[in-house]
Write a protein that binds this DNA or RNA. Structure first.
Lengths: 216, 216, 216, 216
DNA sequence: GATGAATGAGCGTTCATTCAT
DNA sequence: GATGAATGAACGCTCATTCAT
């Protein structure tokens, strides 16, 4: 499965008259768009943005070079589509954690847990990775989600939900940890999300009291 | 000044008779080699290895394409010259910290401090950074030094100088923090090394006791 | 016409249903492939393999550099396509002479005649030669055919169909004569194949009895 | 030894007052010029004109690139110097054969013999050939000498010293044989000049009577 | 829409030649 | 003169993008 990327940029208003039956054309378009995205994710994950050629992408589909440009205006655009999608899907998840959290500690734990679970889900749905000698191993989607985590933590700290410490350093450190541990977690067999969450959370929260305080 | 990269591949034996006066040619060569390295550092820092073209590098000098190849055999070679140099200069510094340290705690503090001081020194000598829209901001030199820190921490943990925790996660987290805080530190005005060291050290050492233990 | 080079790498099965009308795209491809081959033949003939650049070739067509590489993977490949083709077309002709010949004398005469006739046919279909200051004047095709003649004569001698003389010298001399007389023949107006065949054959066969014998 | 190339383009008039002692400068110049020519001969013989770089030549001397251009204005010029020299040295030898010959037959034999002996002498003085996988194996000098033979035979035929046959074909065939047999001769061990002369001469002279006559 | 050939700027690299030392 | 670094046009080749079919 290719994840839940919204493949139709201008979605029909649901319930609009005559729109119930999508039509074969629309089906094909959806299928192709998805195929390109899947191929692109795989290619970017394996080779990195610079190294990937448009032909690397379409070679993993049954489409032609020309078709690629029917769906995306450039190599960059498909990269961003992937990234946007990761962010769009993860944002509500993260927001829910914020709502459910009672204090900074619980927010961190929840955010990390949500992030790691998301990572694993994505990972599962990108099985095509195969066992290539993964050169870089970071899809645009993962990068975008990681950026979301950054903003959430940083924002939470700014709004005073956390201790009076150097907010930027702390946010940076938190997400550096989350990123690093998260990425390592995915390489292990079997994947143990709970252990990773525990490790990252304790690393962050345990360090907190010791941190140098700042005058408010 | 362009750092302490040994610009002269076959250095004169110090004190060799008649070697005192370098001659204008030798001067020019040194200057050009340095100019290329500086330009390459800047270019790699801004654009990343793949994106940088040889012409990107020489455009930042007053030299011609051909001259580049008089000094380095390929784009790769100049990249590695930069990286090797960073590593070569930092290695002894790190080793000294290891010798001076009495336990894991003191080693971490010393290693971090050494790393941050090194970063600052390098930074000072790379004024040309300017304020470009830094796309990645990691020169080969910094990457190499960062790798050194990784190996030192990871190695120290392996040898049992640290607590019985998930060594790989911990090493990863340590250097993720060091990298992140170090990089942020450099963007601030004025640069406060002590504060950064304090922050990173406390974050790591404070988090340590809380970390989930592993059965030995 | 650009000779009989098989321009279509995967020819339609003759009579395959629906394959009668080639379509404009296929036509263009054939035309371009031929244009490149013609241009390459001309360029190699005038300038020699080393001197010819890919741009020399495409300059003689209305195509772009990129198009060249759509048809041939390298300068070398187009050279070999030309050579292979000459050889492929001439081989059966030569083989037929071998079959028809009763002794060495008749074989020589037939082989020379076949070679000269082939030269003339090719020459006719390469009108584009124009009158440039022909620097070398040997296309890959002619070279390949000439090599064929060499092998045929040399092989015939080895198999004992000829007199007991220094086989290597004789084969070398025969084809040197064939090459030289053949090339001169093409420069004359009108081209007189019979006279050239007569000359070359008599030169070789007349010289034969006088040749120093070797102990068998 | 580097052959007898006249290394001094503007030779002192012998006996000119004050010119007896050449001076050290002149000596060095002569030595260098010779070194370049020797190196160039070797390089051209091994690699062919196109493939040879100026650095290929000077690498075989103890000189610098710059020095090369003090002696020859271009790569082409040194090539021609080599060729001119071969011609200049061979011309008188050939002329002597002409004087000594009584008829076409004897002239052919003498010319061939002179040519082959010359080839062997040159060959001996270019020992540096070593055993590289000789890619082309034709120095400019040999090419030039071969051209001399061409002109001499062709000229002799024109002046009516030979039979009334197609002069151009015959001259072409003669020298094609001479070239081919001569070149093969050099590759054999031991080199048997007499046998080669005998072969080439008989091939030519034996073939002569059989040749189609032309109306004068 | 889908196709895939055509385009041409751009890449890393080489090399004949120049020229400051 | 001798030197060898500097120059820059040119090379073989790639690839994002366009466009006729």
């Amino acid at each position: 499965m290719s994840n839940v990327i919204d493949l139709d940029p201008q979605p029909d208003e649901p319930g609009a008259p005559g729109a119930q039956t999508a039509g074969k054309r629309e089906q094909t378009k959806l299928t192709n768009r998805r195929a390109i995205l899947d191929a692109a994710r795989e290619a970017f994950g394996e080779l990195g943005y610079e190294t990937v050629t448009v032909r690397d992408i379409i070679r993993r589909t049954s489409l032609s070079v020309g078709a690629f440009y029917n769906y995306y205006r450039s190599k960059e655009e498909v990269y961003e589509a992937l990234a946007d999608d990761g962010a769009r899907r993860f944002r509500p998840i993260l927001a829910a954690q914020y709502e459910a959290a009672t204090d900074f500690q619980s927010y961190i734990r929840r955010a990390i847990a949500a992030y790691f679970r998301f990572l694993v889900e994505e990972h599962d749905s990108w099985q095509n990775d195969a066992a290539q000698p993964h050169l870089r191993g970071q899809t645009p989607e993962m990068k975008a989600v990681y950026d979301q985590v950054w903003w959430s933590i940083s924002d939470t700290l700014e709004r005073g939900h956390g201790p009076k410490v150097d907010t930027e350093y702390l946010a940076g450190a938190c997400i550096a940890i989350a990123r690093e541990v998260g990425e390592q977690m995915l390489t292990r067999q079997p994947i143990d999300v709970d252990a990773a969450v525990e490790f990252a959370t304790q690393m962050i929260l345990g360090g907190l009291p010791a941190l140098p305080r700042q005058e408010s």
